[in-house]
Design a protein around this nucleic acid. Structure first.
Lengths: 159, 159
DNA sequence: CCGTATCCATTCCGATACTG
DNA sequence: CAGTATCGGAATGGATACGG
């Protein structure tokens, strides 16, 4: 993302990474998804330096992930809200969160809950699924180069 | 991830980010998921410096994402394969890839396909779903602090 | 309150040369 | 082939002071 740009890579993963920019970006997006919209809030919540925060916010705005809008409460200052592009990062954020919950959870338990607002219950895992909505085993998921004929299975081992 | 460690944060997203380490890590994981297992392959595929690659691989092994196993083809050198932990990063990788395909695709189209190995068709989007497997609108997904009572909806705006 | 401007420390990364 | 050792440059991020 720095000396060598990922944006000229064709891979969508690399391009997304380029776009998102840095770990701070993801944490800011997380905060916005949880209802934070103000510079002050990010600064306090993340313990990030002002200038760094400024840079990251500007990059997210430039990348069309966030946008500045007039404050809802009538404050003279703008607020940062997610664009549609930004909101659609939710699957990424949820997947990161759920992986962390399962594999590297804090001893006090996870601090963030992701729930279905209509039922109040925790969301099932974000996971590859078939057309009918059924979860599939990872062994049946295949990533391959688009122009290569032979599908290559990965995650062959199952547990 | 550097001067200030994310691992003491309680948030699972931050903890996952800490664990994965850097963008290079994600791209290495992508390559492994696509069937690459050797130092040489990563080096050529990513255009990464040897020492950097060494560092990233060691970190991924230490973090339990990858492990070194004797080469399947009888080569004297070990290969890098995903652990279960590592394989379960698939939802994250797929979500990143699909977001990139939709929002920042390369003009020549995406270079990576993610398909159902049993049908050969592209996977539906990795997306938050209800218990019955039905996709839900992001407006109904709520992220909140675990110890806070009032669920806070985000992504209120719809289009 | 929301930044901007400096300055500085740390880290990351690439290039290169070298080893088993 | 798969690293290790060393170097230098670039980017990141923190601290602080200042301005609108």
């Amino acid at each position: 993302m720095k000396t060598k740009s990922f944006s000229d890579m064709q891979c969508s993963i690399a391009r997304t990474l380029e776009h998102v920019g840095s770990w701070w970006s993801l944490l800011i997006i997380r905060d916005v998804m949880m209802g934070a919209h103000r510079f002050k809030h990010f600064e306090k919540s993340l313990g990030i330096a002002k200038n760094t925060l400024t840079t990251r916010l500007a990059q997210l705005v430039e990348g069309g992930i966030l946008e500045k809008v007039p404050a809802a409460d009538g404050s003279a200052f703008d607020e940062y809200v997610l664009t549609e592009r930004g909101r659609e990062l939710a699957p990424v954020m949820i997947a990161l969160s759920q992986w962390g919950d399962k594999w590297v959870a804090h001893e006090d338990g996870p601090s963030t809950e992701i729930i279905d607002g209509t039922t109040g219950k925790r969301l099932p895992r974000v996971w590859p699924r078939r057309e009918n909505g059924e979860m599939m085993p990872l062994s049946e998921v295949s990533m391959r180069k688009a122009d290569h004929a032979p599908p290559k299975n990965w995650a062959k081992e199952q547990e």
